[in-house]
Amino acid sequence: MKRIIFTNPTAQKIYDDYFARVSRGISILPATDQRELLMELNSHVYEATHRGITGNEVDILVDVLDQLGAPEMVLQPAVAYKKVQQAGRSFNPKHILQALYLNIANGAGFFIIGIIYLLILAFGSLAIIKFISPGHTGLFLQNGRLFVFGYTSNLPEGLTELLGNWFIAVVILLMGVFYFLNTLLFRLLKKK
């Protein structure tokens, strides 16, 4: 992006500060999207400040930036939307979590996705815990009824563990199923 040069140092500082805020606000986006948004806003500021009106450079610039809006407010929907697109394309959990955070206002759908992600994390943790504490982790039955699926420090008499090392395979399978469901739900919400 070609920087606009102002003759007034105060105007230059205001301009640089504004675009530093824009850059910070969109730093979460892929480089190409960042460049596109920066160029768009820069073009707007250039056209608005060079439309032939006379007056103090600082006043003109402040007025233009005021009408453009605070970057944090103005760009939030764009950042959230682009992050959803990126997450939908890449399936990368990091991008999905960032998109969730940015779209938390989008309501219950994303809340459910968040809960399912927590479940996926919990299942992943159980697979590790099974290695560390195999005797306390698994699918436990007591008198033919489900006692616990997961980790328990309490091992009363008559407790039977059903799965053994298959427990790890089951939790990994559950992680896969929930991950698939989440991605499906995510794509449905994206289409809205």
Partner: peptide
């Protein structure tokens, strides 16, 4: 072009929106 479009919207409507919000919408 972007700025021209924003001005056109402002000329023909009384919509007082932060101009920056139009770019995410265009994208």
């Amino acid at each position: 072009y972007g700025y021209e479009l924003v001005q056109e919207i402002k000329t023909h409507t009384s919509l007082e929106v932060a101009e920056g919000t139009l770019y995410p919408l265009l994208n």
